[in-house]
């Protein structure tokens, strides 16, 4: 993310969370947090338990975020935000919690006279992580047509272009699904399992070889040492953990989509 994108992200984030912008420029953004947002990100549970028990007027914080790097080393007051700063990670985390499940309906579009029929889809965004001493991540955005069971990849990119709303529009109606969403979810999980199974896993073998090499060097420096010190065990464990290989499949977010546009 470039700095402007970060600035935009933050602006949208607070806007969606009803935190008013008090002041903003090319360099910075000052927002008035809501009580809820203050509790989520300001990490001051004592203050809030005090407010709630004592009946004191709650005073949620104002936050100034500086997004232009050329202001980082000036005396401008506020938190310096860059891709990698803990505050941005935290906002990402909150976004993740707040954007995990949706149910969306495609809008009929202007001038649509006749009745519109919407087809139900389950859309799920996955992340696969391979990790050893190195990491590789892959995103998959799967969608399953809940009428006929067809599965497509790149679902998110497709629905992004559509006009969607959180409730069904007038003059449209949707088909009840043939395939229950939870069963569809299980099938998408299988699809992901197959993706992993069919992938090339030479990386596992390579990580093992690197581990063997490291352990060999470690052992070399302890050959002939009678009382092996504790540090040996610690270092050995660290090497084993460093090269341990794991595969993780996780869901970023997902939901039900009722679409008039055919995606196949």
């Amino acid at each position: 993310m470039r700095q402007q994108e970060i600035h935009q992200y933050i602006q949208r984030f607070f806007h969606e969370n009803n935190c008013g912008v008090l002041d903003s420029s090319y360099d910075h953004l000052t927002v008035q947090l809501t009580i809820d947002m203050d509790k989520r990100i300001m990490n001051r549970p004592y203050y809030w338990s005090y407010v709630e028990s004592g009946g004191v007027e709650p005073n949620p914080a104002k936050l100034t975020l500086i997004t232009n790097p050329s202001q980082f080393s000036t005396s401008m007051a506020g938190e310096r935000i860059h891709f990698g700063s803990p505050r941005l990670h935290q906002l990402f985390q909150v976004t993740k919690e707040q954007g995990a499940f949706v149910q969306m309906y495609e809008k009929p579009g202007l001038g649509q006279a006749t009745q519109v029929t919407l087809t139900p889809w389950l859309g799920v965004n996955y992340k696969i992580t391979y990790s050893s001493d190195r990491t590789k991540e892959m995103l998959y955005s799967l969608g399953m047509n809940l009428m006929n069971g067809a599965v497509i990849d790149g679902f998110q990119e497709s629905v992004r272009k559509l006009e969607l709303g959180p409730s069904v529009a007038a003059n449209t109606y949707y088909l009840p699904y043939n395939i229950p969403p939870l069963r569809a979810l299980d099938r998408l999980e299988d699809v992901m399992g197959n993706v992993v199974n069919q992938d090339d896993h030479t990386w596992v073998e390579e990580a093992k070889q690197r581990q063997v090499r490291d352990l060999r060097v470690l052992d070399y420096f302890y050959t002939g040492v009678e009382d092996v010190p504790e540090s040996y065990a610690i270092e050995k464990k660290a090497i084993e953990e460093q090269y341990e290989t794991t595969i993780r499949i996780e869901i970023i977010n997902g939901g039900l989509f009722y679409l008039k546009t055919s995606l196949l």
């Binding site: 992200y9 949208r12 984030f13 969606e16 976004t95 993740k96 707040q98 954007g99 995990a100 949706v102 969306m104 965004n125 955005s141 998110q156 992004r160 969607l164 959180p166 970023i252 977010n253 939901g255």
Partner: peptide, 8 residues
């Protein structure tokens, strides 16, 4: 929906 897209 906006936060869902931002999350992705």
């Amino acid at each position: 929906w906006t936060l869902y897209q931002m999350c992705y």
